[in-house]
């Protein structure tokens, strides 16, 4: 055995290197994940689901015994917020009816936003210190594809599918450095780019770049997807502005954005498999 390794060890090593590099190239060239990644994901899925279920059970038990006073206060604030939002809904219903009437008078096409959703549970959160991602228990078998947007139950954008297997997919969150989205400031209509920044990722924040020099951004402004290019749906809320800062050169501005939802607390999300928007 020792002689085998002495004579052929270097060839074994080189063969393994060739196999590893080939698998990596296949991954890049393939629309879905490579065979090995897919197989590993399929095998690991039940274990990931089990681990996350146990973790969720423990978390639920801890929260059950949380401070009762804090829950009462949160309940009161939520009731106030619901009342404000109900008023806003009534106003928007009235505006929508007026809009439909005006569109009819002007002979314009009916606006339509059709989405096909697939609900999915988070089966694993990535513990990597270099990326921000999580794994869902849905894959090509459910019509999921790379590039599909993922939203929370409230409709806030949380990430984009980056890798998909048979019954699993990896979602890069909006905090990840690889995520870059065409964005729009909802109030002013300014175009910008929202994406992850490594310095902000650990703080749970992302960055709005390429803001015009005459920008009138305010703290609290909603940032939504622009939909330019047709790759992602428009008007998906990404985040809100938390700070507006000038970069080191002093010539351009950027904004620090706070996501609308706590990505680390997500358990169920919705994958937008396809969309049809008529403006």
């Amino acid at each position: 055995m020792k002689r085998f390794w002495e004579r052929n060890g270097i060839w074994v090593l080189l063969s393994l290197v060739v196999v590893a590099v080939s698998l990596s190239l296949l991954t890049y060239l393939s629309a879905t994940s490579s065979f090995l990644s897919n197989a590993a994901g399929v095998v690991a899925k039940p274990f990931r689901t089990a681990f996350t279920a146990v973790e969720q059970w423990v978390d639920d038990k801890q929260k059950y015994y949380a401070d009762y006073t804090a829950l009462e206060e949160e309940n009161r604030l939520l009731r106030e917020k619901i009342a404000e939002m109900e008023e806003a809904v009534r106003q928007s219903q009235s505006d929508s009816e007026e809009n439909a009437l005006l569109r009819e008078l002007l002979n314009l096409r009916e606006q339509r936003r059709d989405f096909v959703f697939e609900s999915a549970f988070v089966i694993e959160r990535s513990a990597s210190n270099w990326t921000s991602s999580f794994t869902l228990g849905r894959g090509t078998a459910h019509g999921v594809a790379v590039g599909n947007c993922v939203v929370s139950a409230e409709g806030y954008l949380v990430g984009v599918v980056s890798e998909v297997g048979y019954n699993w997919c990896t979602v890069l969150t909006i905090l990840d450095t690889d995520t870059q989205l065409g964005a729009l400031v909802f109030r002013t209509g300014e175009i910008a780019v929202a994406g992850g920044d490594f310095s902000l990722m650990k703080e749970g924040r992302l960055k709005l770049s390429y803001i015009g020099t005459a920008s009138q951004l305010l703290i609290g402004d909603r940032i939504v997807t622009s939909g330019l290019g047709g790759v992602y749906p428009s008007d998906l809320v990404i985040a809100s502005v938390e700070q507006v800062q000038t970069d080191d050169s002093g010539l351009t501005q950027y904004a620090v954005l706070k996501p609308m939802t706590d990505i680390d607390e997500l358990t169920e999300v919705f994958i937008i498999k396809s969309f049809d928007i008529v403006e």
Partner: peptide, 10 residues
């Protein structure tokens, strides 16, 4: 590489 998320495959 096949089970964890990494900045680059391999």
């Amino acid at each position: 590489d096949v089970t964890l998320t990494a900045p680059l495959p391999c």
